[in-house]
Design a protein around this nucleic acid. Structure first.
Length: 414
DNA sequence: AACCCGGGGTA
DNA sequence: TACCCAGGGTT
């Protein structure tokens, strides 16, 4: 296509899209004003997440953390709890870290220049452009998946949008056609078109305000675009989890633990669980045991927790973008914690671990306070472990799969 | 550049 | 079932 023709198509695109947006934009909570903090929160929530899913979370979040200072000063646990179920929890932790940066470095005012705003935790090229354009009306591109799809079709771009180079190219193109004084509206208009009309599977071309100049449609290729290489399928993992029921003063409660500070589901709460051993390999090595033994041994070695699994209680599935968990949940009777945690536990675990777990669960060790395997043991949960009842569900943040399991469990018990 | 990081809607 | 996301961080 000639440069002149492309430029004419670009001018048409911007003008028609703005008219369409003015008449058709949705009334969304974060479009009530131009408070950069509110725009920021909405943009972070909208990363990889649909508008309808975000709205209730957004309302709740803004009620609880109405200003950047409220967010900066809140306990992280509360922020995570507010984000529970929304996924990609590093977004919540980074958002709060960013809020604290804004308070400490910029007096609580979200900066309006690209370098400063891009230096905030959790703000990448898209979010920086979105805040600068929507809140401050600066002529910065905000290129997300919608924009890449719309532009790929309209300009018939065949770049693989899974590659970063495609986004960079589309950013340059988008920046070159932002209409004077209307950066925020234009960026939102392109995204709105992608969300409402130029949808991934079956674009509503007959309703499209820029149909007349759409090169992809003219070529009859709107359904083939954008070009996107496929991601690897998630790897399957079988997880063995223990639903450990308390006794005595912990009757009616179950044992949960907090995940490490970094990595998958960082700092969220969960049932104790482990990756199931490769059973074929175990049998080959002459160490084949059942799932009950595997769980008992695994939790002892990895977590310093002695329990006796009783029966399979439920199976749940949980799909991440890169892992597919099948979670087999076993009801288990509590034994004791090995003091000294993992290291001590590893040394204490013997071939007779399942017998030890049985003894422990039947209360032998607990009653006598006797050490096991040369190690002392206890009933008090170490740091990062808790006995919880139904009433504690409101204050601890769980990933969805464990939320389902625990809510199910408490609902059936009571 | 490749990989890590959730969850839900849609066809 | 498979695909799609209103991305950013880490290595």
């Amino acid at each position: 296509m000639s440069r002149e023709k492309t430029e004419a198509a670009a001018a048409f695109f911007a003008a028609e899209l703005l008219n369409w947006y003015d008449a058709n934009k949705r009334d969304l909570p974060w479009r009530r004003d131009r408070d950069p903090y509110r725009i920021w929160v909405s943009e972070v929530m909208l990363q990889q997440t649909r508008v309808d899913t975000v709205i209730p979370y957004y309302e709740r979040f803004m009620e609880r953390f109405p200003t950047v200072r409220h967010l900066a000063e809140a306990p992280e646990e509360e922020v995570l709890k507010c984000w529970e179920g929304l996924g990609y929890y590093s977004r919540a932790r980074n958002l709060q870290a960013g809020a604290r940066q804004v308070v400490e470095l910029y007096g609580g005012v979200v900066p309006d220049d690209k370098a400063a705003i891009s230096s905030l935790k959790g703000i990448g090229p898209y979010t920086a452009g979105a805040i600068l354009s929507i809140a401050y009306n600066k002529p910065e591109p905000a290129v997300d998946g919608n924009v890449m799809r719309v532009m790929s079709r309209y300009f018939l771009l065949e770049d693989d949008i899974a590659k970063p180079s495609a986004r960079t190219k589309i950013e340059r193109l988008a920046a070159s056609i932002i209409p004077e004084g209307r950066a925020g509206d234009f960026n939102q208009a392109v995204m709105e078109l992608g969300a409402l009309v130029c949808t991934p599977k079956s674009p509503g071309c007959l309703l499209c305000p820029v149909l007349a100049q759409c090169a992809g449609r003219a070529a009859g290729r709107e359904r083939e675009l954008p070009v996107k290489s496929k991601a690897k399928p998630p790897r399957p993992e079988l997880r063995l989890a223990a639903l450990v029921e308390g006794r005595g003063e912990h009757a009616g409660k179950v044992l949960v633990r907090r995940r490490p500070d970094s990595g998958l589901l960082a700092r969220m709460w969960e049932l104790p669980h482990m990756l199931a051993p490769d059973e074929a390999a175990a049998v080959e090595a002459g160490a084949g045991h059942g799932r009950f033994d595997a769980l008992s041994r695994g939790l002892a070695e990895e977590a310093g927790l002695l329990v006796r699994p009783e029966r399979l209680w439920t199976e749940e599935e949980h799909v991440f973008s890169h892992i597919r968990w099948k979670v087999d949940v076993y009801l288990a009777e509590f034994g004791f914690f090995l003091e000294g945690g993992r290291e001590a536990a590893a040394g204490a675990v013997s071939e007779t671990v399942s017998e030890a777990a049985s003894e422990a669960a039947s209360g032998v060790a607990a009653e006598t306070g006797a050490p096991y395997g040369g190690r002392s043991c206890g009933e008090e949960p170490p740091d990062g472990w808790l006995w919880i009842g139904p009433g504690d569900m409101a204050s601890l943040a769980f990933p969805n799969v464990f939320l389902r399991i625990l809510n199910d469990y408490f609902a059936r018990r009571t």
